[in-house]
Computed example of a mutant assay.
Amino acid sequence: MSNKLRLGVLGGGGDSLIGVLHRVASAMFDQYQIVGGVFNPDFEQNKGFAEEIGLPTNRIYSDFDTMVAEELKLPEEERMQVVSILTPNFLHFPMAKKLIESGFNVICEKPMTTTYEEAKVLEASLEKSGTVFALTHTYTGYPMVRQMREMIKEGVLGKIHKVDAQYYQGWINPIIHDEESRKSTWRLDPEKAGISCCVGDIGVHAFNLIEFTTGLEVDTILADFNYLYSDNKMDIDASVLVRMSENVKGIVRSSQVATGEENNISLAIYGDKAGLKWEQENPNYLYVLTDDKPLQVLKPGHAYNSDLSLDGTKLPPGHPEGIFDSMGNIYKGVAKAIRGLEYNSGEFPTMRDGVRGMSFIEKTVESNANGNVWVKIEG
């Protein structure tokens, strides 16, 4: 029998971008084998999709509860070891909770839950189970983001005093300006997406990148949202001031109505010795800025990079790697954890990141609703 980890998948069927991303990532390092799941709520479409991607249909289930029940009947050496949750936001919590309590390891799309309280419940369940949980803040998998983290840890920047994270998209522009379209999109429906659209979907990525790279935690925030229309209940643009300590401050900027923008993520961290800048649309370049030397550009795959960066680099220098590779690095780290192997804490985001992220999302909503006031992050 194959020694690959047996992977189940929930959601991600049809033409889902996130489904393709996870399937490719799971195959990248030959650590996983997809054995079944529930790709689509319609059973016939579910089976049809499984056949389309070459999976046998004997472990393609009609619904989530049936999958868990049937998998638990199998001998431990045959049942799914880890399950990826790629469904709409409102299903993340109930699925992850049941999987954890049933002894499965979990890889979950973000946001982890729809409320901070759910996140705390999930955290308590994980502590009891002792299983592995990973949250796919995908951009932490990029080699040069990991290099950024390690350089900051080594003190290259000195004392940090300024952080600036941006995530700009324009995809919702054609939807938000049409009354019927904005009422029928699940990401603008609080019942399915949670209390936030823009911050919950992309702003939380920028927030996570700040904490991932600096090793510091955001303490208080002040948020200003834009909804554009009075009948729209969800934020589609947000500017969030952040304070990490008395002397470390910055901003998280996110927008889904930044006309013409595709996936413009940028991160800049400044200290008293140097600064570091990275952009997701040009992910192979990490810029090092100082006052007394020319601009320095670091690239992946070279021996001058950290072990964590090099572990996430598959190709020789000069061969571009991208979003699939970044997600693949997260899956690789999770495989190490499940197998009980030694791994770097930066190899995949954890439950802790999910709890922090949900607190950030809720507190931005609270800050904006109360007149753009400073509020403290919990968790």
Score class of each variant (00 low, 15 high):
88 P>A: 04
89 N>Q: 08
89 N>V: 14
89 N>K: 12
90 F>D: 14
92 H>P: 15
93 F>T: 07
93 F>R: 04
94 P>C: 04
94 P>R: 06
96 A>I: 09
96 A>N: 11
97 K>R: 11
97 K>A: 03
97 K>N: 13
98 K>R: 15
99 L>R: 05
99 L>F: 10
99 L>N: 01
100 I>A: 01
100 I>T: 03
100 I>M: 01
101 E>Y: 13
101 E>P: 15
102 S>P: 11
102 S>L: 14
102 S>K: 12
102 S>A: 12
103 G>P: 12
103 G>L: 10
104 F>Y: 14
104 F>M: 03
105 N>Y: 02
105 N>L: 07
106 V>P: 05
106 V>L: 07
106 V>M: 06
107 I>F: 10
109 E>P: 07
109 E>D: 10
111 P>A: 03
111 P>K: 02
112 M>G: 02
112 M>V: 12
112 M>E: 08
115 T>V: 13
115 T>Y: 12
116 Y>H: 10
116 Y>W: 07
116 Y>I: 02
116 Y>M: 02
116 Y>F: 11
117 E>G: 03
118 E>R: 11
118 E>C: 05
119 A>Q: 08
120 K>I: 15
121 V>C: 10
121 V>D: 08
121 V>E: 10
121 V>P: 02
123 E>L: 09
123 E>H: 05
123 E>G: 07
125 S>W: 11
126 L>M: 14
126 L>S: 10
127 E>H: 13
127 E>N: 04
127 E>T: 13
127 E>I: 06
128 K>T: 14
129 S>F: 10
130 G>N: 12
130 G>C: 08
130 G>R: 11
131 T>P: 07
132 V>A: 09
132 V>Q: 07
132 V>T: 15
133 F>T: 03
133 F>D: 00
133 F>Q: 01
134 A>I: 14
134 A>Q: 02
135 L>S: 07
138 T>G: 04
138 T>D: 04
138 T>Y: 03
140 T>G: 00
141 G>F: 00
141 G>Y: 00
141 G>H: 06
142 Y>F: 15
142 Y>L: 06
143 P>T: 08
143 P>V: 09
144 M>W: 05
144 M>L: 13
145 V>Y: 00
145 V>I: 14
145 V>S: 00
147 Q>Y: 12
147 Q>G: 07
147 Q>F: 07
148 M>Q: 05
148 M>T: 09
148 M>E: 02
148 M>Y: 06
148 M>R: 03
149 R>G: 04
149 R>N: 06
150 E>W: 13
150 E>M: 11
151 M>I: 09
151 M>F: 09
151 M>Q: 12
152 I>F: 08
152 I>K: 11
152 I>T: 14
153 K>G: 06
153 K>L: 00
153 K>Y: 08
154 E>P: 08
155 G>F: 10
155 G>C: 04
155 G>A: 08
155 G>L: 09
155 G>E: 08
156 V>K: 09
157 L>I: 15
158 G>N: 13
158 G>L: 04
159 K>M: 03
159 K>V: 08
160 I>S: 06
160 I>V: 15
161 H>Y: 12
161 H>L: 02
162 K>F: 14
162 K>A: 08
162 K>H: 13
163 V>T: 09
163 V>K: 00
164 D>A: 12
164 D>R: 11
164 D>H: 15
164 D>N: 14
